[in-house]
Nucleic acid binder design. Structure first.
Length: 277
DNA sequence: CCTGAAACCTGTCTGC
DNA sequence: TGCAGACAGGTTTCAG
């Protein structure tokens, strides 16, 4: 479900409500949701810990739990995960995977129909987050960094944008929207990009993410509610509808077993540039 | 190093 | 109306 803007929206909602709360008990309802440690170690170690801070890294939610030495509770919602806050007397319902009973009469519910979501409780957050590429809204992510990083690979642009070790936080929606706004074809090979094109892509990535956050993310189907960025899509899930720039019908192709939506007129793929695919 | 396919899962929508 | 099949915002693993 959620990409960077949706997770950022969730973190901004949770932070003022949960920082300072103590975890009274954990109830694990689906064991495989817990990636590490074992259920018994988890429920014992998290008890009586206080939420010191809540932050986002890529699509992960990171709860720092005091006191020293600190522990990190890290959640990834994957395709269908969501977080809800319920009253203290809340009884788990279908598809709830993990409950945290909190002081202040609240229950944090990790609800996840497809069971792809994961939770980790670790001493060192880098064990979970260390492999990630740069944050696209950080100062680390600059046009020249992107240009040089793209040239180090020989891969379709969209494959790289979805690769969390290359750049962390983009998913299928924001990758398609960023490529359209920068007028680059999803199959364009990364080492054929000019400095000007890299600059356009960099600006488009930051623009779609900021616009996504400003709209509280995107809400599609029944998963994740409250966002409105879906009203600003230019290509995503708009196959056959006119491109907002030029009116050409939006097309789609399959790449990495995911759909890639693009405008064949605004995002041309010329022979020289896509040599080899 | 890279790609594609399969796996992990359930709910919803489409078309016959 | 019913039902099979496609499809979904993600990631990991494995074969080639």
């Amino acid at each position: 479900m959620p990409e960077l803007p949706e997770v950022e929206t969730i973190v901004r909602w949770l932070r003022p409500l949960l920082v300072g709360e103590k975890v009274l008990a954990a109830e694990l309802l689906w064991e495989r949701t817990l990636a590490a440690p074992s259920p018994s170690v988890f429920t014992e170690a998290i008890r009586d810990r206080t939420v010191a801070s809540i932050s986002r890294r890529a699509k992960f939610i990171h709860f720092l739990l005091s006191s020293s030495p600190t522990l990190s509770l890290i959640l990834h919602l994957r395709m269908s995960g969501e977080i809800r806050l319920e009253p203290e007397e809340y009884r788990p319902r279908g598809h709830d995977r993990l409950l945290l009973r909190l002081s202040g009469k609240k229950t944090l519910v990790f609800h996840d129909p497809r069971k792809f979501g994961r939770a980790w409780l670790v001493d060192n957050p880098a064990v979970v987050l260390g492999y990630l590429g740069p944050e696209p809204l950080s100062h680390e992510f600059t046009p020249i960094w992107l240009y040089e990083a793209l040239r180090r690979h020989h891969r379709p642009l969209k494959s790289l944008l979805l690769d969390q070790t290359f750049l962390a936080g983009l998913g299928n929606i924001y990758a398609d929207e960023a490529l359209h706004r920068s007028r680059l074809h999803p199959l364009r090979l990364s080492d054929t990009i000019s400095e000007d094109e890299a600059r356009r892509l960099h600006a488009a990535i930051q623009q779609v993410l900021q616009e996504g956050i400003a709209n509280n993310g995107a809400s599609i189907d029944w998963v994740y509610r409250g966002g409105s960025f879906q009203n600003h899509f230019r290509v995503y899930r708009r196959t056959g509808l006119p491109c907002p720039n030029c009116g050409t019908p939006i097309e789609r192709l399959i790449l990495n077993q995911r759909r890639a939506h693009f405008c064949p007129s605004c995002q041309p793929r010329n022979r020289e540039e896509c040599n080899g695919i």
